[in-house]
Amino acid sequence: MNKSREIILERLKNNTNETSHTKVDITKKTYDWSKEEIISKLSENLQSAKAETYLLSDAELIDWLNEELPKRDINNILMGSSIAKQISKDINNEIEVLKYDDPYESWSEKLFNETDASITTTIGAIAQSGSIVLHPTPEEPRLMSLVPDIHIALVYEDTIYETFEQIITNQYWVKNMPTNALLISGPSKTADIEQVLAYGVHGPKELIVLILTS
């Protein structure tokens, strides 16, 4: 095993010919979009990938949930404890609040087969590509944004960046990469059969992004 390592590296180092490729300066792109522009770019791009977006104030969140969840036949919803603390006393009592308190293995079947929806926070969003950005945590683990049929994500308006590069730089990703970082830009989809778009192949069938204004 180590022998292969040495052979490969030796061969690669063997090529001592100077390659004269010119290094291109990657200019940092900024658009200088206003707050309104940045929100509308994000919404437009997400919508064109078939995600739903809503612009709400913090206070309107609970009303939105109480109105929309029953409409979508959501009987239970998975959330982290911070969100649960914020909304569980006001949420329609016909909707069961589920929490990801135990390791995945101990409740995998319920997560896969009996969880209608999830609601997670994000660490921001990217307007240019229409992406929400997640760094899953013990409170909001990785599968929350993948397994339930409907994923609702909260994006605070002041965490929307113009580009992917800006979010990496401004949030110092290089210094503290999480176990898993994700860009999500719509519901799960495929075009593998005759290039016909079909949604909800393995991941969520619906992505709903709630942009929260302060």
């Binding site: 945590t137 176990t179 830009s185 519901p187 989809k189």
Partner: peptide
């Protein structure tokens, strides 16, 4: 595929860390 971006861009930097519940 002529997409602005794909649905998922998945960046993995480690297996499940202590305290994490999946992965």
């Amino acid at each position: 595929t002529g997409q602005e971006i794909t649905t998922y861009f998945n960046m993995i930097s480690s297996p499940r860390r202590e305290g994490e519940k999946d992965g």
